[in-house]
Design a protein around this nucleic acid. Structure first.
Lengths: 128, 128
DNA sequence: TCGCTACTTTACGTAAACGTAAAGCTCCCC
DNA sequence: GGGGAGCTTTACGTTTACGTAAAGTAGCGA
């Protein structure tokens, strides 16, 4: 038997409330098993939560995250579906690459700003 | 005299509505000059809009974007402020680097998925 | 059996980021 | 001078992503 988790346990691990975890279930992002009335989370649910959190850090909406997660569950039986699937993946890759460029631009600017500041600071401190 | 822009012009350039541009003004992100009742945007306002859009692509809230934009306007007279400023920049850099890692992870996964799909697809097509 | 802890459902509230009328100026052209 | 075109303010509506009670249930130890 593989390990299972309670809702409070997972919420704590990912730094969210139990309300949030239930909300993600309402949105169809995770589907824990029930033991009586209680939710029991599998390692698979935990992986999904990890994907959700990463998506949120990247600024995606829950709907977009749902689409992405469902990519992993696509049934590869139909050739046309498979082709569409590949297109979706390529679009996602393009968006991610654009985002990466934005980040690199921002990082470069932050570096410039930091250097200006440290230079200014050392001037001021050597003058005192 | 440097170039100026109308609201519709800028909205079109950045792919948003005029309502959005005015909303950013309400939030204090841009401060166009008035000519009578009309808003006149300077190249500086345009640069700010560009920064706002980049921030949004990175998933930042307008409040976070406001903080970032204000980084460029900090007066470097006080040494303590300068030190705090450097700390803020370093925090931002750390967040950006984490986000970059997330993106690279996602990109790697998308690559794996795409390869699985293309392999599957070529198998199916050679078999037909 | 009491009470505590950990969960549950139901449901109203809220902040952010705009959308969407509605109604009014102002300039310009015919 | 009538009417667009393009802007303005005012203000209520909407979606997303939860927060926050309120009230009930289920097990467990004293």
């Amino acid at each position: 038997m593989s390990e299972t988790f309670g809702i409070a346990e997972l919420a704590k691990e990912f730094g969210v409330t139990t309300r949030t975890v239930r909300f993600y279930e309402d949105k169809g992002l995770i589907s824990p098993v029930r033991e009586g009335q209680r939710r029991i989370y599998s390692p698979r649910d935990r992986v999904r939560l990890r994907l959700i959190m990463r998506g949120k850090r990247l600024g995606l909406s829950l709907d977009e995250i749902a689409d992405l997660i469902n990519l992993y569950d696509v049934d590869p039986s139909e050739v046309t579906q498979l082709k569409q699937f590949i297109d979706v993946i390529r679009e996602r890759k393009a968006v991610l690459k654009a985002q990466k460029r934005d980040i690199e631009e921002s990082l470069a600017e932050m570096d410039r700003l930091e250097k200006q500041c440290t230079t200014l600071l050392s001037q001021k401190q050597s003058r005192s």
